[in-house]
Design a protein around this nucleic acid. Structure first.
Lengths: 218, 218
DNA sequence: ACCGGGAGGATTGTTCAACAATAATCCTGT
DNA sequence: ACAGGATTATTGTTGAACAATCCTCCCGGT
């Protein structure tokens, strides 16, 4: 979502991606109410344009409308986490299983892992989380399917939202770097089957972990 | 997309679904330009509200923005058809393979097949097409996954758009009714594996057919 | 006849101001 | 303490305005 786009596409979309980034980065917290007038003046745009941006993000599941009360940052639930992981399994595993080892997205995967490792060495765990998500986007990019890629982009924004809800200790992201490294290694070696199996493990482990963190919340 | 929603959700969304229905029903043809002032006055809403609706539908892939020229009804290409069928396979086949035979969506599948047959007997082929798509939505509903269901709803709108582009002979929809009947029968009998195989055949056949029709166009 | 280049009109992009409708808050009288 | 009504804040929707951009068509030069 919050990636390559823009140009002259229009102010509303630009605002939408900016808001999306703020949500993903944690500047806007889940459940927070977004007042139209306040944000419009802050971002120096008109209320109408802001409303267009809100509509966009509502469609993406980043924001939530309440009929006559306004928009709020979406708050992820256990049910939504389960749903997201289910969809992830459905998309990512076949994507990896049918991967062409010399697809350009493999390089993206490698870059994402490297970046995650660098960020981990500086203890910037939020950046590690972003890099890990970029890794999985690269996996989906292996399919060359615009619709699957767009769908997954939405899922990943929602996922970042959920991560933002949790406390951010190293344990949330650090263990997965080496797993990702193993996966990309297998793909580069041409062993898609094994890579897909590893990914399945990854997803199971990650899902369990995030659910457990969630349960420890409220 | 153009289904259960509404209530007090807001005028823009209501307009969006109405436009979406018009697109799906063929009242708005692919490639057609949508003038803001014209539609705003016709539908008796303000231009601002209409623009919000446009933004919504752009996100769904129903409309297309061209920077300083306006919005157009999206026109499906061969590439998009291929992409849609790829995503359909990825989602529908596992959905069916893991189906619980007494899931309520099975009844929806049965109803859709019955309806398609009735419409075929009256030679209303557009309605047959809609019923067939409803059948496949019901398949995805077997997953109980809100995100997959929403994603598939988008795909199905795009698909209807593509059908609208084609000439509408019986051959486009009629052969698939009996295939659908066979699939729902297998599910009711608890033979998911066989149902999934049948679905795979269905999709392959349907894709070949639509691609051939497409090639015969321009 | 052909081509370049404005002039003018149409349409979008964005803003602003206004008001009705609804929800939240506060105040008051018991 | 609390029910109920008045007040305020916010959203929902509209209309008008103006700049920016694109399209068309006409005109003049070669």
């Amino acid at each position: 979502m919050a990636d390559a786009r823009e140009q002259t596409t229009g102010l509303a979309e630009e605002i939408a991606t900016r808001l999306c980034e703020q949500v993903a980065s944690g500047a806007l917290r889940p459940g927070q109410r977004l007042f139209e007038t306040k944000f419009a003046t802050e971002m120096e745009i008109s209320r109408n344009t802001l409303r267009e941006a809100f509509r966009l993000l509502t469609r993406d599941g980043v924001l939530r409308y309440e009929p006559n009360r306004g928009v709020f940052v979406a708050v992820p639930s256990m049910a939504s986490i389960l749903d997201i992981y289910r969809a992830r399994r459905l998309i990512e595993v076949p994507a990896l299983a049918q991967a062409w080892p010399r697809h350009e997205a493999v390089a993206r995967m490698r870059l994402a892992v490297d970046h995650a490792e660098r960020m981990a060495s500086v203890l910037d765990w939020r950046a590690v989380g972003s890099a890990n998500i970029e890794f999985h986007r690269a996996i989906v990019a292996l399919t060359d399917s615009p619709r699957l890629i767009a769908f997954f982009a939405r899922l990943s924004v929602e996922l970042r939202l959920a991560f933002g809800l949790l406390k951010h200790p190293a344990v949330l992201h650090e263990p997965y770097i080496s797993l990702n490294r193993a996966i990309v290694q297998r793909i580069e070696d041409g062993d898609q089957k094994c890579a897909a199996d590893l990914l399945e493990d990854y997803l199971a482990k990650s899902e369990r972990m995030i659910m457990a963190s969630f349960a420890r919340l409220d």
